[in-house]
Amino acid sequence: MQQNEYLQVGVITSTHGIRGEVKVFPTTDDPSRFEDLKEVVLDTGKEYRKLAIEGVKYFKQFVILKFKGIDNINDIEKYRKMPLLVSREDAVELEDDEYFMADILEMDVYTDEGELFGTLTDILETGANDVYVIDTKEHGEVLIPAIKDCILDVNTEENKMTIHLMDGLIS
């Protein structure tokens, strides 16, 4: 599996005012990272369009962005519901044992006994720790906490995760 060149950091939800600002729902762990970005890439579905960031503000859970050269609501309205991406070079640095969601979703999950257990289909952010949703043939959907006791190894190059099934995780 080839890793995506771009990672999503937000989605334009609506326009904000009439001067070309947009309200963005951040899909990054740290919304303040927009302040460090010089540009984002708009995925229109047909093309990738680079947009230079001119201003960053915050409103409730949203980030308000102003792009250079877009000064009118009519120039930005058509981009509602479209994702904003950053290149991997502009992505945040990860700590050890941290991964971009895009790199582990659809990953094959094996038990520590070497058996294929299922596929990682979703990641629930619960606050204390993430919870991985594993789709299995034998047990249906299984929730595995993303903690060191359960997640033994993640190999993004081989698209493989190794887990330890603690007692009580599957019924």
Rank of each mutant, 00 (worst) to 15 (best):
10 G>N: 09
10 G>L: 05
11 V>L: 08
12 I>T: 03
12 I>S: 02
13 T>I: 15
13 T>H: 04
14 S>N: 08
14 S>Y: 04
15 T>V: 14
15 T>N: 07
17 G>H: 12
18 I>P: 03
19 R>N: 15
19 R>D: 15
20 G>D: 07
20 G>F: 09
20 G>I: 14
21 E>C: 11
21 E>H: 15
21 E>K: 15
22 V>T: 09
23 K>P: 04
23 K>W: 04
24 V>H: 00
25 F>S: 07
25 F>N: 10
26 P>W: 05
27 T>M: 13
28 T>A: 07
29 D>W: 04
30 D>G: 00
30 D>R: 11
30 D>F: 13
31 P>A: 09
32 S>V: 13
33 R>K: 11
34 F>Q: 01
34 F>R: 00
35 E>W: 04
35 E>P: 03
36 D>V: 03
37 L>A: 01
37 L>F: 11
40 V>H: 05
42 L>A: 00
45 G>M: 05
45 G>W: 02
45 G>C: 06
46 K>S: 09
47 E>H: 01
47 E>N: 11
47 E>W: 08
48 Y>Q: 10
48 Y>P: 05
48 Y>D: 02
48 Y>N: 10
48 Y>E: 08
49 R>N: 08
49 R>C: 01
49 R>D: 03
50 K>P: 13
50 K>G: 05
51 L>W: 01
53 I>A: 01
54 E>K: 10
54 E>Y: 10
55 G>E: 13
56 V>P: 01
56 V>E: 00
57 K>T: 00
58 Y>M: 04
59 F>A: 07
60 K>L: 03
60 K>S: 14
61 Q>R: 07
61 Q>H: 08
62 F>W: 06
62 F>R: 05
62 F>Q: 01
63 V>A: 09
63 V>N: 04
64 I>E: 01
64 I>K: 02
64 I>L: 06
65 L>F: 03
66 K>A: 14
67 F>W: 06
67 F>N: 04
68 K>H: 13
69 G>V: 12
70 I>C: 02
71 D>A: 13
71 D>L: 14
71 D>Y: 12
71 D>P: 05
73 I>T: 14
74 N>M: 11
75 D>Y: 08
75 D>K: 14
76 I>R: 02
77 E>I: 12
77 E>W: 15
78 K>M: 10
78 K>G: 15
79 Y>H: 13
79 Y>K: 11
79 Y>D: 12
79 Y>G: 13
80 R>P: 09
81 K>F: 14
82 M>W: 05
83 P>D: 13
86 V>T: 10
